[in-house]
Simulated assay, not measured.
Amino acid sequence: MNDTATDVSRKQAWLMAARPHTLPAAAAPVIVGIGFALHEKQFAPLPALAAFIGAALIQIGTNFANDYYDAVKGVDTDERTGFTRVTQSGLIAPNEVKRAMYGTFLLAIVVGVYLVYVGGLPILVIGLASVISGIAYAGGPFPLGSHGLGDLFVFVFFGVIAVMGTFYVQAASLVAAPFLLAIPGGTVTMTAFLASLPVAAISTNILVVNNVRDLENDRKAGKKTLAVLIGYRASRGEFIGMLALSYLVPIYFATTSAFGLAVLLPLITVPYAAMITRTMLTKTSGEALNPALEQTGKLLAVHAVCFAIGMTV
């Protein structure tokens, strides 16, 4: 146990383990999914609420898994410059964090029972894949985050699937009977996929900032994140490319007859995004990138709210 453990209460330690600053990554896809559902006149409040609770639980469970597995595998060390990890620092015993991880994923599955009732077999498949991937991100014989697949995992599960799934359960609850075995028409569309891309992109950038900050420590520990594999320059290019995608989609929507000019509302966040980008292009220290990590989460939240509002006007 290091000195950090003597200054932190148990409640504070569990909050640190849950990482509430990452919850925008759970809320943002639900917000956009609701905005798109309102645009399509398919809004259903109970499925939307259940989707948010399930997404938040999967996010927290993934955080517990990352904290636990990175500690027991020796990835997290005292040299790490990021936010305090409770397992590595001795704030919470490893077995307790592990039990919390499984308990949180179990709660997500319980919430998922209702979503399966509404959305049927497709939601069952998506839900189980999300839980398994959340554990496999840092654990198991082939941890995704340690083999350069973390960015893809976040893009797909916390972006594309989360947004489209939120829209799907709302639309399915209105157009079809419970316990579906197939996907009803109009519930999975190309427009819904495009609407998911900004959330997917900025959610991925949260991980990019995290991995650029931890690049040297991860390299020493043998954790092959995408940032370790491609280096600082390409990681910064990935960050800029993801940001560009998050603004190109609203611009494209504005050129179509289906949406009004209000869909351009996310562009008000460009100056804030530019500020974060300047830090990303010039800094590598935890002192600089820890604030940038929180700022990217805030960017995700504000961008999602603006995009959702823009789609409904």
Results as ranks from 00 to 15, higher is better:
residue 114 Y to D: 04
residue 12 Q to H: 11
residue 284 T to Q: 15
residue 133 S to R: 02
residue 208 V to K: 02
residue 300 L to E: 07
residue 62 T to F: 06
residue 101 M to P: 01
residue 90 G to V: 02
residue 227 A to T: 08
residue 208 V to Y: 00
residue 94 P to V: 08
residue 28 A to L: 05
residue 82 G to D: 04
residue 155 F to R: 01
residue 246 S to F: 07
residue 101 M to T: 10
residue 253 F to A: 07
residue 164 M to N: 08
residue 248 L to M: 14
residue 275 M to W: 14
residue 73 K to F: 04
residue 75 V to Q: 05
residue 127 G to N: 06
residue 308 A to I: 05
residue 51 A to R: 01
residue 96 E to Q: 15
residue 120 G to E: 02
residue 285 S to A: 13
residue 307 F to A: 06
residue 309 I to H: 03
residue 303 H to M: 09
residue 243 L to C: 11
residue 61 G to D: 06
residue 207 L to D: 04
residue 134 G to D: 04
residue 151 D to K: 02
residue 52 F to Y: 14
residue 22 T to F: 07
residue 215 L to Q: 14
residue 238 E to H: 13
residue 260 G to F: 09
residue 1 M to N: 12
residue 310 G to M: 07
residue 288 A to K: 14
residue 33 G to H: 04
residue 275 M to V: 12
residue 155 F to N: 03
residue 69 Y to N: 08
residue 109 I to V: 15
residue 187 T to C: 15
residue 233 R to P: 00
residue 267 L to N: 07
residue 107 L to F: 13
residue 295 Q to P: 00
residue 293 L to N: 02
residue 222 G to E: 07
residue 180 L to E: 12
residue 2 N to Q: 12
residue 302 V to Y: 07
residue 146 S to Y: 15
residue 41 K to G: 10
residue 74 G to A: 11
residue 232 Y to G: 11
residue 244 A to Q: 06
residue 5 A to V: 08
residue 162 A to I: 06
residue 166 T to V: 09
residue 165 G to W: 02
residue 214 D to Q: 09
residue 21 H to L: 13
residue 46 L to P: 04
residue 80 R to E: 12
residue 227 A to F: 09
residue 152 L to P: 00
residue 266 P to C: 11
residue 147 H to G: 00
residue 216 E to T: 13
residue 95 N to F: 10
residue 239 F to C: 03
residue 125 V to H: 08
residue 265 L to G: 02
residue 278 R to G: 14
residue 222 G to V: 01
residue 22 T to P: 04
residue 134 G to Q: 07
residue 198 P to G: 10
residue 158 F to L: 12
residue 119 G to E: 06
residue 3 D to L: 14
residue 99 R to G: 02
residue 19 R to M: 08
residue 78 D to F: 10
residue 112 G to S: 08
residue 110 V to F: 14
residue 3 D to T: 12
residue 202 I to Q: 01
residue 90 G to C: 09
residue 238 E to S: 10
residue 268 I to M: 14
residue 160 V to P: 01
residue 68 Y to E: 04
residue 1 M to R: 13
residue 147 H to F: 09
residue 55 A to H: 10
residue 226 L to R: 12
residue 112 G to A: 08
residue 311 M to V: 09
residue 186 G to S: 08
residue 60 I to T: 12
residue 181 L to N: 14
residue 250 P to Y: 08
residue 239 F to A: 09
residue 255 T to I: 08
residue 276 I to T: 10
residue 127 G to H: 05
residue 33 G to A: 12
residue 171 A to S: 15
residue 223 K to E: 04
residue 95 N to R: 15
residue 228 V to Q: 01
residue 55 A to W: 04
residue 262 A to Y: 12
residue 307 F to L: 15
residue 92 I to T: 02
residue 174 L to Y: 06
residue 94 P to W: 11
residue 180 L to D: 00
